[in-house]
Design a protein around this nucleic acid. Structure first.
Lengths: 355, 355
DNA sequence: TTCATTTCTGTTAGCGATATCATACGGGCG
DNA sequence: CGCCCGTATGATATCGCTAACAGAAATGAA
């Protein structure tokens, strides 16, 4: 020890700084004192019980129980430079993305990671705000929906070197990694199928394409396939709506009004398709005899209605679980070794009664 | 200073401890150095720009831009003892709770709070796990769904004195505060309405009641009202299902098989009601002539289908926004002053074509 | 027994912010 | 012209934990 009588006295005489402290927060030091061991032993007993002797482990566990100790993840993260938190940003919290989120958490939780969810409402501005907030909280990784993002988001993420996995679509040039299916190819496939069924006047009922690469790609798929088949697909055959039932009905009316002779409607979402289908039924239009209707997503309702909806099954859950796996693989291994940059999980055309 | 030449020398000679540091993380110190001011000025310029002179503010902002500084919320939270994070725990991430979550974030974000979402899958065990994880992250407040929780959760929250607002139901004895509507009264009201319509053999299609006070209360409401009216409502008239369309159909079949003469089905969820309705239509049972069908939730689809569904409108969005407001009121004011413990947002019986 | 290893446990110095107190700076007034 | 006081800025000690290293104890080989 150093000669420090004087110092001790000085300290004792100094102004007593009493800092505000949360209620009755139990600190690791308190647990350590009670267990009669050092804080490091407590820390180790919590994070990696194998590395301390059974004796110490037992005493620490007892002390934790008695004090009602709740570890402080903030302090832990600050010191260890990792939060064990992953953030996911989705356009909307609904059943579809709910499945994806479930896929994510099912993988993250067993590995001790938590998920922070952000909802953009389909706005890239909001996505940027959320990204910044999440980065501020030093999330270990980020899961984004789609591959279109603001320049600001791209730069931030590149500079900070945070692992990112994009989902729900594919592109040759992901920011980092991407897992999903080709919205473009899926839309082409469905359009091709409808044409193959002999349909010629196919209307398109799509989502708002602004800030939404999935909606954009689906529309491109429809247009390209119609063009290849030399069929009309001009702007008047396409209606853009928010993905809610009632807008499906409205969109359907719009198309019918402009083109009373259409013989099929390809909706880029089951919500819209079901809305359109109900509207047809209400107006006495026979589905699929007069008009064929196809959806996109294979949501729960598509197989429950009558006639059952032809649609595209997409790997909602798998995109989440796989994305989380890809992230974890990089977070839990020291190396920057990671597999494919682009993972295609595919899609499936489900032919049912509405076409 | 103390006499410490020796000590200094010793330090200088000591091994150079180089600690692992995240990539090229820019710290507040770096910004301060670049701006030629103290860290405190940077801190103040960020949190409360009014408190520093325009001169300093400008220099700090410039330095932040140039360095691409991203504030470290962990360090900030650790030092300030508040995270500005609120956690919400919901049973399931779907359109319904999506509305509630939207209500929450719409209130939290403008006030600079972030939302951490947890999904229990209707398990109180999972709820407990999530609660502990969130408390570990020192969330400033907690929003729970319903009023039934494990003993462990209750104790933890009481001991740690974290503000809690329960939602989606009412009770005279909330853990802390509660905002919602009476699931019990709503179910009674709907049952009463059906009886008033002349229905006598009313089947009940409900959610799984385990770990779910909302489902339990709705069932109680149905039973009590039927009992008061001296109508049968024994176990054979009740079917419990997960809240998905196809289970609605199955439950409908079950009830019809056991009671071919039922003249109404009250489903405690629109999903189940719609599933049941489609099944009736498929089997050629006229709705509402042969069987009346009522739902619960006023979800999007209930007004889109044909016949439109009679249901209970519940304040999904408002429960979220109001709960968040109640929490913020306590977090942003120093005092422990808060308004009502129990806030009843009410419900509304929406009579449409299915009854 | 003795010394070299290996395994546990403890000490210390941060992690990157904020709270608190101390100090510097101005302007108004006697 | 000097003094007082309110405001702006700075220095420093935490916040509660973990990384890195050091020292102690246990184990094994000679």
């Amino acid at each position: 020890m150093s000669i420090s009588n004087g110092d001790d006295a000085e300290k004792a005489e100094g102004p007593i700084r009493q800092r505000r402290r949360a209620g009755e927060q139990v600190r690791m030091t308190d647990v350590a004192a009670r267990a009669g061991v050092s804080v490091m032993s407590v820390s180790r007993a919590i994070r990696d019980p194998e590395r301390v002797s059974p004796k110490i482990r037992a005493r620490v566990e007892k002390a934790m129980r008695e004090t009602g100790y709740v570890p402080n993840a903030l302090a832990s993260s600050l010191a260890s430079q990792r939060t064990r938190i992953v953030a996911a940003i989705v356009p909307f919290i609904n059943a579809s993305f709910g499945d994806t989120i479930r896929g994510i958490t099912d993988v993250l939780h067993p590995s001790g990671y938590e998920l922070l969810i952000g909802e953009t409402g389909h706005s890239m501005q909001v996505e940027e705000r959320l990204t910044n907030a999440f980065l501020s909280h030093r999330v270990d990784g980020l899961l984004l929906t789609g591959h279109s993002h603001t320049q600001g988001v791209r730069e931030r993420l590149r500079n900070l070197k945070v692992p990112v996995v994009e989902t729900w679509n594919l592109t040759d040039e992901p920011m980092d990694q991407i897992v999903g299916f080709s919205n473009y190819e899926a839309a082409r496939a469905m359009t091709r199928y409808l044409i193959g069924q002999g349909r010629r006047h196919i209307g398109y009922l799509g989502g708002i394409t602004k800030d939404n690469d999935r909606a954009t790609d689906r529309e491109r798929g429809y247009i390209d396939e119609m063009t290849v088949a030399d069929l009309p697909c001009d702007r008047s055959l396409r209606s853009y709506r928010k993905l809610e039932f009632r807008h499906g009905g409205e969109g359907c009316e719009e198309l019918l009004e402009r083109h009373p002779d259409i013989d099929a409607i390809f909706a880029a979402s089951d919500m819209l398709a079901v809305g359109a289908l109900f509207r047809c039924i209400k107006r006495g239009i026979a589905v699929p005899d007069d008009i064929a209707i196809a959806g996109f997503d294979d949501s729960d309702i598509s197989s429950a209605i009558h006639p059952a909806l032809t649609t595209v099954r997409v790997p909602r859950y798998e995109m989440g679980s796989r994305a989380a796996q890809m992230l974890l693989q990089r977070l839990d291994t020291d190396e920057e070794t990671y597999g494919q940059k682009v993972v295609d999980l595919g899609f499936e055309i489900l032919i049912r009664d509405s076409t």
